[in-house]
Amino acid sequence: MDLEKILTSRINAKILKLFCEHPHCIDTAQGISLWTGLPLDKTKNSLQKLAHHSLLVEHKTLSTQGYALTQDKKIITAIKNWLNRNPNDT
């Protein structure tokens, strides 16, 4: 997984920044779209991709899809380091 490449997307970076700031958060695409101010369709796509790359964890049922930050410490540290280095890219 190329984290740098994933985070060059402003949408991905903004979503991950939200989760790093609120690590307890589990929310749907609609919720994430509201908190980040990003369009819903782009948020959905981004969330699915981030879950695919295991940066987010998906909690899926027939009616609801919730997303939460991975619990992998290394990945979290790498994300935070990137966000600290690039504060203006979100």
């Binding site: 609120h22 958060c25 589990i26 929310d27 919720g31 049922t61 027939l62 009616s63 609801t64 919730g66």
Partner: peptide, 21 residues
């Protein structure tokens, strides 16, 4: 307010996920 609202939304999302089975 923002962290509290996000926390509330989390509780709501969890409720929906739990209730789905």
């Amino acid at each position: 307010i923002r962290p509290k609202t996000i926390a509330l939304s989390t509780v709501h999302t969890i409720g929906r996920i739990i209730s789905s089975t």
